[in-house]
């Protein structure tokens, strides 16, 4: 038996915002430690890794590890039945091929129960090495989102360059070229507004911009996000959800022919 209750049910909605444009179906790995997911996009260029710790949930019970396959388009439809302030309980009986989602209003005056069929999904599980990155930049997630959106109307690829002075996003297209630099800045009162650059070695990598736009759909999960880069390795874009877990996106760089 698997059962887990989230007081902030809309966390799942926010997570799905970031996932559904990247993957249409995925296996959720349920274990006593929590719920995780790893999936590649259909062109195998990007990979998403989600982790929600068991203690992020109000009541968490997972009697045995199990993978449950879900169509994320269908899951998004089901989540429409949940109000933004509703609690969300997930229940999956080991003997059944479905999951039950229960949405309850905080005042306990509305109760919705939806059952959704699970599916068998063949998926490859990749081992992600624990990289030490050449550069890690933390910045407000809203700022990152705005930058990648703005640049995507100019070009298709983005060159990300980190030096001790800051992080620069560059693109070019028919309209012309654009460079946006964010310098380290820790002068604001709120830490979430800071931009910090942790640099071992300067690094420059080029990526398909549209993936960054998709990753930025996780902006509502966290005020801060981080970009971790190493020479000729996939970038890691992370949105941490406090001590509840994280969503990490990996994107393979474009390599000069």
């Amino acid at each position: 038996m698997f059962e887990a209750k989230l007081i902030q049910g809309n966390l799942i909605k926010k997570i799905m915002e970031g996932l559904k444009d990247l993957v249409t179906e995925a296996n959720f790995d349920l274990s006593p430690g929590g719920v995780s997911l790893q999936a590649m996009d259909s062109s195998h260029v990007a990979l998403v890794a989600l982790m929600l710790r068991g203690d992020a949930f109000e009541n968490y019970r997972c009697d045995r590890p199990r993978s449950i396959g879900m169509n994320l388009v269908n899951l998004s439809k089901v989540l429409k039945c949940a109000g933004n302030d509703d609690t969300m309980t997930l229940k999956a009986d080991d003997t059944q091929n479905n999951i039950t989602l229960v949405f309850e209003s905080q005042a306990e005056d509305k109760y919705a129960e939806v059952q959704m069929e699970l599916m068998d999904i063949d998926s490859e599980h990749l081992g992600i090495p624990d990289n030490t990155y050449d550069a890690i930049v933390k910045m407000p997630s809203a700022q990152f989102s705005q930058i990648v959106k703005d640049l995507s109307s100019i070009g298709d690829t983005v060159t990300v360059s980190v030096t001790k002075d800051g992080i620069t996003f560059s693109t070019s297209g028919d309209v012309g070229t654009a460079h946006i630099t964010c310098k380290q800045n820790t002068s604001m009162e709120k830490e979430a507004d800071h931009t910090t650059v942790n640099l071992e070695h300067p690094v420059t990598l080029t990526f398909a911009l549209r993936y960054f736009v998709t990753f930025a759909k996780s902006t509502s999960l966290s005020h801060q996000m981080s970009i971790s880069l190493s020479k000729e390795l996939p970038v890691m874009v992370e949105y941490a959800m406090g001590d509840m877990g994280h969503i990490r996106f990996y994107l393979a760089p474009k390599i000069d022919d």
Partner: peptide, 14 residues
């Protein structure tokens, strides 16, 4: 020009 590599070429199958 730039060529796009697969993410699978970086991460090992586990």
């Amino acid at each position: 020009g730039n060529s796009q590599r697969s993410i699978k070429s970086f991460f090992l199958k586990s």
